[in-house]
């Protein structure tokens, strides 16, 4: 979790590409993932993402993200296999449950799309300084400063939230909550913990908003309007 979506400083060619162009490339790769039906093309796109990660000198981090995405999508994969029943049965289980070649193909495609679409966004955001992105959104795309700021602030909050969540999990583990069970059990235990997290996040966001207001945030809002 640590360091996810957090800017990693560097001097690679990808760091120097204008932020908007980077975002555009990432979105293009996402779009490609969703428009193709070929597993080979999807695989190629994922490999491309990883290569981009290595060019940006965050190869190891990219592989780590890929790894956790794989874990997550394997759950979806298993669920999907049983839902799709068209095609030729490869394995037939009791109660009429069958695993088909079409089901296998479809599940693989869903998972690879998920990975292929998430990865470029995380890679690009890790290689982009958020204020640069805000500035370009305002200057080039003429997005009102307020919205651009809100957008980048939201992204900036993700690692903070992730860190808070990790701390909550740690504290609950310390008092005896066992979180290494299956996915459903984990979800049931973690959901109530999200409430205090939400409360503290709202406090944080409010403090941030006041801090921005007291440093003239609204002045720029006016000028842009």
């Amino acid at each position: 979790m640590k360091g996810m979506l957090q800017y990693v400083h560097g001097n690679t060619i990808l760091h120097k590409v204008p932020p908007l162009l980077k975002l555009l490339i990432a979105i293009a790769i996402c779009a490609a993932c969703f428009s193709t039906r070929s597993l080979l093309v999807l695989l190629a796109l994922i490999v491309l993402d990883v290569i981009l990660g290595f060019i940006g000198n965050i190869g190891r981090q990219t592989l780590r993200t890929l790894c956790s995405l794989c874990k997550f999508s394997s759950i979806i994969f298993v669920l999907q296999i049983f839902f799709v029943t068209q095609g030729n049965a490869l394995v037939t289980l009791p109660l009429g449950v069958r695993i088909t070649d079409e089901g296998l193909r479809f599940s693989a495609m869903i998972c690879m799309r998920l990975i292929g679409a998430t990865l470029p966004l995380t890679v690009m955001l890790t290689l982009t300084r958020l204020p640069d992105l805000t500035r370009q959104l305002v200057k080039v795309l003429h997005v009102p400063y307020k919205y651009a700021f809100a957008f980048t602030t939201a992204i900036r909050f993700i690692p903070i939230l992730a860190r808070d969540m990790a701390a909550v999990i740690e504290a609950q583990t310390a008092r005896g909550v066992e979180l290494d069970g299956n996915f459903i059990k984990k979800l049931r235990l973690l959901l109530p913990l999200c409430v205090p997290l939400l409360v503290s996040s709202i406090r944080k966001i409010e403090a941030g908003a006041i801090s921005a207001e007291l440093r003239g945030f609204h002045l720029r809002g006016k000028k842009a309007a």
Partner: peptide, 28 residues
């Protein structure tokens, strides 16, 4: 007067160090 106008005279620093930051780099 608005807080923004007041902030030309009064600077405020808060307890929650992370929450009051608006960017990820010192210079910004």
């Amino acid at each position: 007067v608005t807080p923004t106008d007041l902030s030309r005279v009064v600077g405020s620093v808060f307890q929650d160090i992370d929450a009051q930051m608006v960017s990820s780099m010192v210079e910004d």
